[in-house]
């Protein structure tokens, strides 16, 4: 069933991708009690690419990216992010690694007691303590402008729409200028037009900040719009990886319903 180890250059929509791996996952296993979530996960993320991870709800997609940033620990296997073994590094090294990996949460996870500007300043002032007030303000405005929400600077998260919250969440991760972006369900709960905006933003982020990204979703429109490569998580394993067309050109009963639901119904 698995696609034959595809040539990464062939799979790309973008042309500037080189073959450097920024994330390598080998034989990853994770269980919660008796419930095996990830059984034998193998995955590579190449520099500059957008990799979409598809899968049904509860198949461990979010668990996978939480392991990548050390929010969860794996039971066995190897996880290498930017040449660091995530499970074998000290807390200090983990913090340094987290500076290079942006994480956009499904529900945006904005700090609801702070304004939009304070949300963005929070990670910046704590990680770059030498920055002056003017530089911090400039960075905040710059990154908010990049996501098209400069006008919301002094608004509270509760005053924003779902799409705006997603954008601010992405801006908050971009302010630290990460090399890798992890998006957890970026279009979940949004209307189709806002979904399109978010998809465009993900592509813009890739182009402007030269990030490599993993996008967790079950929205195939999003997958098609942003993914250079697609991987489907089935029964705790990545059984199909490749371009969008390669992955869905199959009669596999576990894969077809995804396509049918999104594009036929």
């Amino acid at each position: 069933m698995q696609c034959s180890d595809p040539d990464p250059v062939e799979q790309k929509k973008t042309t500037d991708t080189n073959l450097e791996k920024v994330i390598t996952i080998r034989n990853l296993y994770k269980a919660f009690g008796n419930f095996e979530v990830l059984k034998d996960v193998n995955l590579d993320l190449y520099k500059g690419e957008n990799l979409v991870v598809l899968g049904k709800s509860g198949t461990g997609k979010s668990v996978l990216i939480k392991i990548l940033v050390g929010l969860l620990t794996c039971d066995s296997g190897e996880v290498i992010v930017l040449k660091k073994h995530v499970d074998h590094i000290t807390y200090k090294e983990l913090l340094e690694l987290r500076l290079k990996v942006g994480f956009s949460f499904q529900n945006s996870a904005l700090y609801d007691s702070m304004t939009v500007a304070e949300n963005l300043k929070f990670p910046l002032v704590r990680n770059q303590r030498k920055l002056g007030k003017a530089e911090v303000n400039r960075s905040v405005e710059e990154v908010l402008d990049a996501v098209g929400l400069l006008a919301t600077l002094n608004q509270m998260p509760s005053e924003l729409s779902g799409g705006q919250r997603k954008r601010v969440g992405i801006a908050r991760t971009l302010i630290l200028q990460p090399e890798i972006m992890l998006y957890d369900e970026p279009t979940a709960g949004l209307d189709p037009i806002t979904c399109e905006d978010i998809n465009s933003l993900i592509n813009e982020v890739q182009e402007r900040y030269h990030t490599s990204s993993i996008i967790i979703t079950h929205d195939l429109t999003c997958a098609k719009a942003v993914g250079n490569r697609v991987a489907i998580l089935l029964d705790g394993k990545f059984e199909r990886q490749g371009t969008f067309e390669e992955v869905f050109n199959t009669d596999d009963d576990r894969v077809k319903p995804f396509y049918d639901y999104n594009f036929i119904q």
């Binding site: 939480k66 609801d112 704590r126 990680n127 908050r172």
Partner: peptide
Amino acid sequence: AELGSMRVTEQIDAMEVSATN
């Protein structure tokens, strides 16, 4: 309630992944 709400809405996780304590 405040910290509990921050935990379940992943605000605490968001602080962790942004390399803050």
